[in-house]
Design a protein around this nucleic acid. Structure first.
Lengths: 256, 256
DNA sequence: TAGTGGTCTAGACCACCAA
DNA sequence: TGGTGGTCTAGACCACTAC
């Protein structure tokens, strides 16, 4: 049954480190469906005894799988196969509403506020929002959840001339802006990948170092004035951004 | 001078694990410019002696910084502050050429072929390319470099009806297709984040587990026929994808 | 209270790199 | 050849969870 942890496989290992062998064995077992999502692995000490490896080595093998999102560890409780995460697809060309997106998918959208306040602007905020050191910025920070699964962290900065009191914002920042006639109509985004910090990983309930999408967005009024500067972190395992590309004018026919 | 590793800071530590303290101290020193890119840190054994920590603990602190891309370790050589990586910005709305993009930036584009051949199609390839089990796919795998810095891994799959012999492809797949009158004019992309596997990390010369952008692209002929199915991995620390968003029709003014 | 994961240690050997 | 990072061990204590 549990040939997975048979000592024989580790006494005369093939090439490569022992922890990688164990890591791969577990990973393959999961992929093959031999370990269902939510099912538990033996305690670390038991895996060590079964395989004949030290607990440190077992931990290193398990850590690799935790970081890549295949396993979840809970202190005092145990090690479990990670539940399957449903990937959400999001169009990149439309400035849409998180709540509406979720409603369209039949999911309950919710926000948890982490911070709201007015501060002196950071240099980057001065640059992007066009502020001086004497101006102030309203900062809004929250976690976005769908069906109670945290999907993203949003950190928005707006000139206090545009949003004097961040406490008046309810579920929707754009709704608040719209009431003041300051709804953005256009935005520019930059997308990159990053390893989640300990803090962000905790907020998104994934392992430290897991991959996330970092998205910076600057949105504009019809007049061209900047409205908001938002830096978001999306869970890499739960989000797909979809974009459509058109061919560029390319007489020579070179290529990507 | 090297108060960075002063034992005093670790004998009576504040809250939290010792390795995190060390990790943060080094990270802050780098951010403050006190450790220039390319400069070396003391050997692990020396850091352990200086701080009064065990080598295992020092390694754990260093590993965190290696994984997040702040440090680089070379076996037999030492530990160094990572060189600054220039971020490249790439428009998401245009199907452009890697070589041309790089030329526009004054960089030398180069490809290293990893594999080229004709195979039986994988299930996913059958789905996307519309093949049967009797058809064949041409697979092309290469690393893209700019000024000798590896930026991306591209894995393309095409029906062998479209590309019978993958060996005829030169620097540009699209140029080869264009010669046959099969140049795509439209594509759909999906972007997500992932932790790099050991193999991909090696190819891109970054740490295992570093964050990367995974991009799947399906491109089409004017007729709507699928031309290629490409799965790429981009370095998260070197690439920014830029997209412009237009407001969606939203009478109620909800929001992101 | 018993069991789990989280941290930490001291010491060992190996593989690789540079002189 | 000497020094570096990479792997591995046996054992200890702590913090948290579940009962």
């Amino acid at each position: 049954m549990d040939a997975l942890f048979a000592a024989a496989a580790f006494t005369a290992p093939g090439p490569g480190p022992l922890y990688l062998h164990l890591s791969r064995r577990i990973s393959e077992r999961i992929a093959a469906g031999g370990l269902a999502p939510g099912s538990s692995l033996p305690p670390e000490r038991e895996m060590a005894a079964l395989t004949g490896l030290s607990r440190v080595t077992v931990r290193k093998a398990v850590q690799a799988l935790v970081q890549s999102g295949q396993l979840v560890q809970r202190r005092g409780s145990g090690t479990f196969v990670a539940p399957k995460v449903e990937r959400l697809e999001q169009a990149l060309s439309l400035l849409t509403s998180f709540s509406e997106d979720m409603a369209r998918r039949g999911k309950a959208a919710r926000s948890v506020w982490l911070a709201r306040g007015v501060h002196a602007p950071a240099p980057e905020e001065m640059m992007v929002l066009g502020l001086t050191a004497q101006d102030h910025v309203a900062r809004l920070e929250r976690v976005r959840l769908a069906d109670e699964v945290p999907l993203a962290i949003e950190r928005a900065a707006l000139s206090s001339a545009i949003l004097p009191d961040p406490m008046v914002v309810g579920a929707s920042l754009y709704a608040t802006l719209a009431e003041r006639g300051l709804r953005p109509v256009r935005a520019v985004q930059r997308i990159s990948a990053t390893n989640l910090t300990s803090r962000d990983a905790g907020l998104l309930e994934v392992a430290v170092g897991a991959a996330g999408l970092r998205i910076e967005r600057v949105s504009y009024l019809p007049s061209g004035r900047v409205v908001e500067f938002t830096r978001s972190i999306y869970r890499g395992d739960a989000y797909d951004f979809a974009a459509e590309l058109q061919i560029a004018a390319e007489p020579q026919g070179k290529r990507t």
